[in-house]
Design a protein around this nucleic acid. Structure first.
Lengths: 213, 213
DNA sequence: TAGGATGCGGACCGTCGGTCCGTTTGAACT
DNA sequence: AGTTCAAACGGACCGACGGTCCGCATCCTA
């Protein structure tokens, strides 16, 4: 890569980072804005990053180095603890990089799920869920745990105190990552043994009639 | 409202419905498309519905009548069961109205949460969560449950069998809506003393301290 | 230092959501 | 029926955006 190309790449990433940090809404940061702020032609942006999503992804990768550290703290700890660490790290990242994270989740052709990074986190979490509570529906539960720290939800609950966030996350992870009880066909109402507040079962499944598709 | 206005309103909703049902991606249905398909000027669209979001909302309201039925099935059943019913109804709705649901969740100024309908569901679910497991973090857990059936997640897992969906949802609701155990301060890894499966209960109210805002 | 490849910039394009305004139409009143 | 006017209509128009194109400048190699 030519020297000026490297220089410009840096300039663009820096400018984009600044603009996203300052913006209230990712959609208010246009490619023209970024080009102008970087002191670079628009063509250069697209030549280097392909399209808007490419630029956002590059910026995300650059900033998420710290996030990957959470992955490294692996060894002997219980799966549930590791899952909680991971989710808390993601939460913190999304609080610190609000607009960028929002941009990434919205920019992908409509879906946050068409994203290599997501797949990595999801695979990791799926493993932890399976380890903690068994393989049944582990992948779906992993999706749900990740959805619990989706950018726009974080944004929606932004003014919450850290304590409240941590408490909610902790409760969630503890609930979901407790080993499965029962056989999956028991009506939901009954919780574990000794649950006093649990409503006594009043069957009526009515749940799974095959719905139209 | 004038007669022609009524007629046109219907025509627009019908056309929009058809177009969204046929489209693969909500963004591929433009306001011009809808106006043309309805045999109506563009100005009419905007005069009647304000903006794109308004039109989508109107269409959503029209189609979600059935959904509200799920709300009516209230009385004596356990909270967890009612929550599951609600989530399954939402899932079914989003499978049947894929593109429209996606449109609604994306169209809101960036956020699916800036939406009156969402608030209603969330309030209802929060109540159920509190009833089933206590008030602690109930509102956050309700958000998470709703996130478990978000349109784009549903879209991502679209090819799943109905059985798998139901199983996952059931497991999730059962986990999250079991009465709270533990005291919320114990590190997750350690379940109760010697508890390998179900942690022993140990209340701890301490639920809703006034959080910072 | 000459040549070719790489990169650059910004005018340009198609599309989209939304606005404007001259024209038409429905209906209330005589 | 005729008069009147608020309401509604429609489509040309606008500004903004993401993305493309291509003549020109810049860097690297021999």
């Amino acid at each position: 890569m030519r020297a000026d190309a490297v220089r410009n790449r840096e300039a663009v990433l820096a400018a984009a980072g600044r603009l996203f940090d300052a913006a209230a809404d990712p959609e208010r940061v246009s490619m023209d804005d970024i080009a102008a702020a970087a002191g670079v032609g628009k063509g250069t942006l697209f030549r280097r990053f392909g399209d808007r999503l490419g630029l956002i992804r590059a910026l995300y990768e650059q900033r998420s180095v710290e996030l990957h550290a959470a992955l490294a703290t692996a060894p002997g700890r219980p799966a549930a603890q590791r899952a909680l660490d991971l989710l808390e790290a993601m939460l913190r990242f999304k609080l610190d990089n609000r607009v960028l994270a929002l941009a990434l989740e919205n920019a992908g052709a409509g879906s946050p799920y068409r994203n290599e990074a997501y797949d990595r986190w999801h695979a990791l979490l799926t493993g932890l869920v399976a380890e903690a509570r068994g393989p049944e529906s582990a992948d779906y539960l992993a999706h749900v745990l990740l959805a619990a720290v989706r950018s726009d939800l974080v944004e929606h609950l932004r003014d919450r105190s850290d304590d409240r966030w941590t408490a909610g996350l902790r409760l969630l992870v503890r609930s979901v990552l407790s080993p499965a009880e029962g056989d999956g066909t028991t009506p939901i109402g009954r919780a574990g043994p000794g649950a006093s507040a649990a409503p006594t079962a009043s069957p009526e499944p009515a749940a799974d009639r095959p719905h139209t598709r």
